[in-house]
């Protein structure tokens, strides 16, 4: 435990110092007026904007989070089904894998307006976009995990008369958890960004809509406030994934203590 704590400090120390340096530079730039205030708002202006806009930001955040949540759940669910099917049938794997990779070469920003045209200004096009961007990392993570399952362990379970479903449940799925969570962490960050991008292109609420409004008003302090909020939400979601990962794989933590 002790060693783990020290590792964390050593790992994060330089990053924290660099981050502090950037913040100091920003404060200096604003206080000494190196950059005019209408181009780069001062940190305290951003903080003030954040405080006054808090109720509005919360309202829009909830809409964005809702979209991100539905999109992520659907994307993960779909990714799971695809990965399981592609693992079970090699033909399906060979047929679909290139298409999966192909979908990743389509720029998100380019298809978002199309989705708006097809599905309107409500939540549907936003959720669909999030499904598209989150589906891939989850599917690929799970597929790699399933394929990395120990063949001997599978043979052992088969010798015990296990059904294919039991092999999946007791070997393949738990073996894929580490890769699944790596994929999920990326997907969670994509989900928030995906929601914001799709809101830019049309909608009635959400942080992306708020962003376009304050941009048109040249309210750079509010713009900065919402950018920081979006970052914080993404980080929060990633932390949530980390927490779930630790909960689902407690055996990983105890490994180091013994040796």
């Amino acid at each position: 435990m002790k060693r783990k704590l020290r590792n964390t400090t050593r790992d994060k120390g330089p990053a924290l110092i660099a981050l502090g340096g950037l913040l100091a530079l920003w404060i200096a730039a604003s206080a000494l007026e190196w950059v005019p205030g209408y181009l780069l708002p001062a940190p305290w202006d951003v903080a003030a904007a954040f405080a006054t806009e808090a109720p509005l930001l919360l309202e829009h955040s909830l809409i964005t989070l809702q979209e991100a949540f539905y999109g992520l759940v659907l994307g993960v669910g779909l990714g799971f089904l695809f990965a399981a099917a592609m693992d079970a049938w090699d033909l399906l794997y060979r047929a679909l894998y290139p298409i999966l990779v192909l979908t990743q070469t389509i720029p998100t920003v380019a298809i978002a307006p199309l989705l708006v045209l097809w599905f309107g200004y409500e939540m549907a096009p936003k959720i669909i976009l999030i499904v598209i961007v989150t589906f891939f990392p989850v599917t690929v993570g799970l597929l790699d995990g399933f394929r990395a399952a120990d063949r001997d362990a599978v043979a052992l379970l088969r010798s015990m008369g296990a059904s294919p479903l039991q092999v999946f449940r007791y070997i393949k799925f738990p073996s894929a958890l580490p890769q699944f969570f790596s994929g999920l962490r990326i997907a969670a960050a994509y989900a928030v960004v995906g929601a914001v991008i799709s809101e830019w292109l049309g909608g009635f609420g959400g942080l992306g809509v708020y962003m376009t409004r304050v941009k048109q008003a040249f309210a750079f302090d509010k713009m900065f406030a919402v950018i920081f909020l979006i970052s914080a939400i993404s980080l929060g979601l990633m932390a949530l994934v980390d927490w779930a990962e630790r909960r689902c794989m407690p055996y990983r933590n105890s490994k180091g203590e013994e040796t």
């Binding site: 052992l156 010798s159 015990m160 008369g161 794989m249």
Partner: peptide, 18 residues
């Protein structure tokens, strides 16, 4: 027909997550 005799290999194959 699998499932009649028990089988143990050189690798202990204990599942790390159980």
């Amino acid at each position: 027909k699998p499932g009649s005799v028990s089988y143990m290999l050189q690798k202990d194959l204990l599942l790390p997550y159980r």
